[in-house]
C-alpha cells in the first residue's frame, strides 16, 4: 500500500517535536550541562597533558592539540547517538510519546524528523560547550575552529540517523548495547582519535577511511582546530553530507515500518 512507497511528509510539524525535546532538556539543564563540561577537562588533563608528556608531538603537533579535536568529534558522535538510541527508544516504547504525537495532525515522518533534528541539536550543544573549554585551554586555532559549530549539527544529524536505524530495528532496549559496544566503542578508538590512522595496518586504514563515520568527523574537526587541510577534508565533508541525507530518510522509513501497523 501507500506505506511501502516512501514519500516523506515533512513540514513545520517536525519543529514542534524538536521543541518538545528542547523544553524537556532545558527543564533539567543542571543535570544536562555538567557532564560535557567536566568530561573534556578530565580527558584533557589526564590524556592530553599526562599521556602527552610521554608522547610529545605527533606530526609536529603537541599531543594535547592532537586529541582536542578528536574529543569534540567524539562528543558530537556520543550526544546524537545516545540520544537517538536509548532516549528515543524510551520515548517510543516506554513513554508512548510518539503515539501521543501521531494522534495529532503530525505524521510519523515529522515525529522522527523532529527526533533526528533534536539529536543533532544535542551534538551542537555539547560540542559547543566543549569547544569553549578547549578555547579556554588554548588548544584550538581561532577563528577557524568556530566553523565546528555549524558542522557539529550536520555531523550530529549523521549519527542521529544511524542511531535511529538501530532504534527502529532493535527488539528491546538491552539490544541497543550491541551497537554501543560493537560499533561506537571501536570507532571511538580506531578513527584517528588518539593516534593517527597511518599507524594502523593498511587494510584497517582503508576501512576506517571508507566506512567509519567518526574518521570523517575527526578529519574535519582536526583540520579546523589545527588549520591544516588535505584533500581528505573535502572527501570527509562530502562523505558526511551524502550519508547524512541517506540515513535521514532510511531511518524514517524503518521507523514507519516498525510503528505503522
Amino acid at each position: 500500500m501507500a506505506q511501502s512507497v516512501y514519500i516523506p511528509r515533512l513540514t513545520r510539524g517536525a519543529l514542534t517535536v524538536w521543541r518538545r525535546n528542547w523544553d524537556v532538556f532545558f527543564k533539567t539543564y543542571q543535570v544536562n550541562f555538567l557532564p560535557p563540561l567536566v568530561e573534556p577537562i578530565l580527558y584533557l588533563l589526564a590524556i592530553g597533558y599526562g599521556l602527552g608528556m610521554f608522547v610529545g608531538e605527533i606530526d609536529g603537533v603537541p599531543y594535547v592539540e592532537f586529541i582536542a579535536p578528536a574529543m569534540v568529534a567524539i562528543s558530537i558522535m556520543n550526544s546524537a547517538f545516545f540520544e537517538c538510541t536509548y532516549s528515543s527508544f524510551v520515548r517510543m516504547y516506554y513513554q508512548k510519546t510518539f503515539d501521543a504525537m501521531i494522534a495529532t495532525p503530525l505524521a510519523l515522518d515529522e515525529v522522527i524528523a523532529g527526533e533526528l533534528l533534536w539529536g543533532a541539536t544535542r551534538s551542537f550543544i555539547y560540542s559547543s560547550v566543549m569547544l569553549v573549554v578547549l578555547i579556554g585551554f588554548g588548544v584550538v586555532d581561532l577563528p577557524l575552529s568556530l566553523i565546528i559549530l555549524p558542522f557539529s549539527f550536520l555531523a550530529g544529524l549523521l549519527f542521529a540517523g544511524i542511531a535511529m536505524c538501530f532504534t527502529a530495528i532493535t527488539p528491546g532496549i538491552d539490544s541497543l548495547n550491541y551497537p554501543s559496544f560493537l560499533f561506537i566503542t571501536p570507532m571511538l578508538l580506531f578513527s584517528g582519535t588518539f593516534f593517527p590512522l597511518d599507524v594502523l595496518p593498511g587494510g584497517l586504514q582503508i576501512f576506517a577511511r571508507g566506512f567509519l563515520p567518526l574518521t570523517q568527523v575527526v578529519t574535519v574537526t582536526r583540520s579546523l582546530t589545527l588549520s591544516t587541510f588535505s584533500p581528505y577534508f573535502l572527501y570527509s565533508i562530502g562523505w558526511i553530507s551524502i550519508l547524512t541525507v541517506l540515513f535521514f530518510f532510511v531511518s524514517i522509513h524503518l521507523m514507519k515500518r516498525r510503528l505503522i501497523v
Binding site: 514542534t16 521543541r19 518538545r20 523544553d23 524537556v24 501521543a100 495529532t104
Partner: peptide, 18 residues
Amino acid sequence: NLDTEFTCFENLLVYSRY
C-alpha cells in the same frame, strides 16, 4: 501517555503546538 517531565499546563501547551 502524558509527558511525565512536564506539568499539567505544559503538557497541554506542548500538545497544542502539534
